Structure formats: structure tokens, C-alpha cells
Amino acid sequence: MTNYHVPAGGLPPQSALTTDRARFTEAYAVIPARTQSDITASYLPGWQWTRLWVLARPLTGFAETFSQYIVEVSPGGGSENPEADAGAEAVLFVVGGAPTLTIEGTTHGLTAGSYAYLPPGARWTLHNIGPDIASFHWIRKTYQHAAGLDVPEAFVTRERDVTPIDMPGTGGTWSTTRFVDIADLRHDMHVNIVNFEPGGSIPFPETHVMEHGLYVLEGKAVYLLNTDWVEVEAGDFMWLRAFCPQACYAGGPGRFRYLLYKDANRPAPLSGALR
């Protein structure tokens, strides 16, 4: 059975300890699940009966290439004009409820596990016409056009319809659910799901050029972020700057899975180079 963490809002009780796993460093940040409370919720114009938690946004010393929200739409809520930036592409990943997404006049009924890619300039709307709260991740990035490549088309799929790809030599203990073919260079970001069975690990410190956003959908693990091993669990969000070393050990008892953002397939900008 596939599980997805859904923020519940509310507030910790007055008896709760203030000490937490929240961290903000030059190389990484950890935003624990309980941070997604009522007092940290945000609101956007053009959205009715909707609140959201901003996990990442372009900011000096923080995320540079993307923003990520967890959006909660109450029954009857939604938006006719959700995206104000014509240059922004997006991925929506539903974790709860059944929102209705319309793209260029075509309507899609979404459920938990639904995934939608929205290219820049796409005309889309989203409404919750069901009786339950609808919750989804909304990941946004300014699309980087590349000579000779068309802008990708919009598409909608579901996690259960995508076969995970085992990482080499892991026997299925570590796999990635890829919603976009890595050979499709039209896409300048990948939003995947990384899966670990109990005992699975990233057995070396990965260090590479992509900026990362990781939201834990299910389970718990210990994660290496730069030089620190940090315990993380369902609902936690991690940001990793480019070249931040990372590794993972998923000790169980259940699966450990996270939604992963990374920028991809474009040359590094040289705006600071000598001319």
C-alpha cells in the first residue's frame, strides 16, 4: 500500500518541547513536519478557501532555482488563475483528496498519487469539488529555453502507472520512480520519487551540481547533509544546495520515500565570468 504524508495543520500543545530538528545552514536546511502548523500557513491572491506552506523559494543563501509549496484546498475552493508568472513551469503531486485539474480545456480528476506537469504559459485551473480537503505539492521553476528544443507538453499520470527503476546493483532496495525520461532534454527539472526498502542506503556521499528539494512522503531514515547525520521522518522537508554531500540509511521498519526536485539538463550560467 502506498502512503503519502498530508500536513494536518494545528499547533503543537503548550506542553511540547521547543527543541526540534529544524536546521538552517549555508549548505542545507531541514524543516520538520510539525513546522507546517496553522501559524506558518500562507495565502495567495486568486485562490479561494486555500492555504499553503512555503517550503522553498528563491532567496540569497537558500533555494536558487525553484519554489515548493504544500497546498491545502478546502471543499469548494481553488483557483481560476493559479499562476501569475508566464515563464513558470510546474509540477503538481497530489497527496490527499481529489482535486479537479483543467489544462487547456481538458479536465483531469486527480487523486492521491496523481502527477501533472504544466509547461510555461499553460492555461490551467484547479478546484476541489469533492467533500474532503485536497492536498498537493506545487513545485515551480522558471523554464530555461534551449536552442533547438521545444517546450515540453503538459501531461498527467499517476505514480502507480510508472514502474520504479532499480539503482544498479541494489537488488531493488533503492529505486527511483521517474515521471520524465532522463533522455528528454526538453525538461530542465526532474521531480521524481526516491524509494528505499528497509535497510536500503545511498552508500557514498553524493556530491553534484544539482540543487535539491526533498519532501519525505513516507517512513523515516538518517540522512547525511554536508557533515551532519540528521534523523528525518514523513512530513520533513530538506533543501540541499548544489554540491552539498548527501547520503542516506533507511533502517526501517517500513519503506522510506521522498519527493525529489532537482534542476537538470542545462549548462551552468557564467554571469560572473570575466569578459
Rank of each mutant, 00 (worst) to 15 (best):
G46I: 15
W47F: 14
A63G: 08
W49C: 02
S15E: 02
P12N: 06
A33L: 06
L92C: 03
P58F: 00
W49P: 00
P82G: 11
E64M: 09
A27Y: 02
W53F: 08
P45K: 12
G78P: 03
Y69M: 10
G78I: 05
S67L: 05
P13L: 08
I31K: 04
Q14L: 07
G46W: 10
T60L: 12
I31Y: 05
R21L: 10
N81A: 08
F24G: 02
R51G: 07
A29S: 14
I39F: 10
I70S: 02
P13D: 12
T18E: 15
S42H: 09
V73N: 02
E80P: 05
E89P: 04
D38N: 10
P75V: 02
L52A: 12
I39N: 13
G46N: 07
V71C: 07
F66Q: 11
V94D: 00
N81W: 15
Q48L: 11
A63D: 01
W47E: 05
Y28D: 04
G78W: 04
V91F: 05
P58N: 03
Y28V: 02
G76C: 11
T35H: 06
P13Y: 04
P32Y: 10
T35V: 15
R34P: 05
R34A: 11
T50Y: 05
P82S: 12
P82F: 13
A33F: 02
G87S: 13
R21M: 15
P45R: 13
